[in-house]
């Protein structure tokens, strides 16, 4: 399997705090890969670095064989890196339809050409066509997902998509993620282990910015090192 995302010795410091310490990661095309670990493990930092929202202090990042380490977030998004943010952030003064169309425009040949697909996504996610500022929290999260999918990402970064969802919304989200085509590679950060184990092909465990283990969900569940890593953090 060709690596769609490759990360080599990636490091990031905030002052004296080492948020990520020389992390290596390979994610194959079409793979669903989950990042887990206790708070402060560096999961969101890793997503920020891959999306280009932050700059690494060392190491390199390749997407589909291309070195993107020095590219800004917009260039990476145009190469197919999409992201679902922890806090949904739409453009409040645009309508939901326009939000989806604008989000997809750069990857789909412009705003007007994106509109038909945007209409489909709008109804598929059960969203009303109102200004984004009028949506409820659950609807905003749906909109956030629709916006990310509108850009037809090759690599989709998900930052705790299940946080704050009701049971119904959670099962909707699980279904959406399960039904994603295999042309989309997924890197998921999530605390809900049921979602992780149901979705992921492989799981990477981080702790204090260090790589602890990578393996299939079964291997990770069985691993004693992983359990100790979590247990120590909890204690």
């Amino acid at each position: 399997m060709r690596a769609l995302l490759a990360v080599d010795a990636l490091s990031r410091r905030y002052g004296s705090l080492v948020a990520l310490d020389r992390i290596d990661l390979r994610i194959g095309e079409g793979e669903r890969h989950a990042l887990i670990g206790p708070n402060g493990a560096g999961k969101t930092t890793l997503l920020d670095l891959v999306a280009g929202a932050a700059r690494p202090d060392g190491g390199r990042i390749w997407v589909a064989g291309r070195d993107v380490t020095r590219l800004g977030p917009a260039r990476r998004a145009r190469l197919g890196v999409g992201r679902i943010h922890q806090r949904p952030a739409a453009w409040p003064s645009l309508s939901t339809l326009d939000n989806i169309a604008v989000a997809g425009a750069r990857r789909c040949g412009g705003y007007r050409r994106t509109l038909p697909a945007a209409r489909q996504l709008l109804s598929a996610h059960g969203l009303p066509d109102v200004t984004a500022a009028q949506l409820s929290h659950g609807q905003r999260r749906q909109l956030e997902i629709a916006m990310a999918l509108a850009g037809r990402p090759r690599l989709l970064l998900l930052d705790e998509p299940a946080a704050g969802l009701s049971a119904v919304e959670f099962s909707q989200l699980s279904a959406v993620l399960r039904d994603l085509p295999r042309t989309v590679t997924v890197l998921l950060v999530e605390h809900r282990l049921d979602l992780v184990y149901a979705l992921a092909d492989r799981v990477t465990v981080l702790r204090d910015g260090q790589h602890v283990a990578t393996g299939t969900p079964d291997e990770i569940r069985a691993s004693s090192t992983v359990r100790t890593a979590y247990a120590e953090a909890v204690i």
Binding site: P73, A77, A90
Partner: peptide, 23 residues
Amino acid sequence: GPAGMYLRGCRDDEARMRASGHP
């Protein structure tokens, strides 16, 4: 048209525009 959308998008949330690939 799109030009107005894009500019309002920049005004509302610039980082989100970048994350969607807009220069």
